[in-house]
Design a protein around this nucleic acid. Structure first.
Lengths: 108, 108
DNA sequence: TGGCTTTTTGGCAAAATTGCAAAATATTGA
DNA sequence: TCAATATTTTGCAATTTTGCCAAAAAGCCA
C-alpha cells in the first residue's frame, strides 16, 4: 500500500526532474501557447541541436510533452495540461522571492 | 525583455529541480496534510539523517518549504501552497500513464 | 556545567546529468 | 536514385548530484 504510493511518488518525481532544467522549462513554457517544431525550440534555447533533442526526449519520456510529425518537421505540444496553471504559481513565487530579497537588501 | 523572462524561468526551474527527487517529493507530499518534524520525515524516507537534512536544505533553498523550531525539534511545512493542487494532477497523470501502458501490454 | 538529543557540515566515492561533435536515421524532392 | 533537410543517437569528458560516515554545531535541561 505504502509501497504503491512510493512508486507513484517516484514516477511523479520524474516529471519534476524533467522540468527542473532551465532549457527544458523554457521550451515547455513556450509550448503553453501552442505547438512548436523542434527548429523553433532550438532557436529559442540556442543550444546545439543534439542537446535540444536530448532535452526533448527527457520531456517526452516523463510524459510532459508529445510530438507529432507533420510535413518535414516534428511538432511538440504540451501534454500535461495542468502545468499551465502551476507555472503561473511558480512564476509568482519567484517574483515574490525577488521582492523579499530586495526588501532585505534595502533595509540594510 | 526576453532575458528577464529567461531568468525567471531559470529560477522556476530550481523549484522543479528541488522537487525532482523521490525522497524529496515524498517528504513534500507528506507535508500536504500538515507540518512534520525532521524525525518524522526521516522515518518516512528511511535514509540516513544527514541525507534527510541535506534534502530538506534543498527544498528550503528552493522556497518549497519553511521550517520552524519548536521545543526540541524542527518542524517543516509546505510553503508553496499551489503545489498541493498540482500534485493531484501529476498523480493522475502517472496513473493514466500506467493505464495506457497496461493497454499496450494487453493488446499484444 | 556537562551530557543529551537533534540537525547540519565536511569529506569522498559512486552514479547521473550535461553538452558538444560526429555518425546514424528518416523524409522529401529533384 | 541522390542529395538535402530535420531530428535522433552515440561516444565522451566535464560537472553535478547522491548518500554515507564521522565530526561539528546547537539547543535543552538536570
Amino acid at each position: 500500500m505504502r509501497e504503491q504510493h512510493k512508486r507513484s511518488i517516484a514516477e511523479q518525481a520524474k516529471i519534476f526532474k524533467a522540468l527542473g532544467h532551465p532549457s527544458r522549462l523554457l521550451m515547455v513554457d513556450a509550448l503553453r501557447d501552442g505547438e512548436k517544431c523542434v527548429c523553433e525550440l532550438r532557436e529559442l534555447v540556442g543550444d546545439d541541436m543534439s542537446t535540444i533533442s536530448r532535452h526533448l526526449a527527457v520531456l517526452r519520456e516523463a510524459g510532459v510533452v508529445t510530438s507529432k510529425k507533420r510535413g518535414t518537421s516534428i511538432y511538440y505540444r504540451l501534454k500535461l495540461g495542468c502545468l499551465n496553471q502551476f507555472l503561473q504559481c511558480t512564476a509568482a513565487a519567484v517574483q515574490q522571492k525577488a521582492r523579499e530579497h530586495l526588501e532585505i537588501v534595502q533595509s540594510r
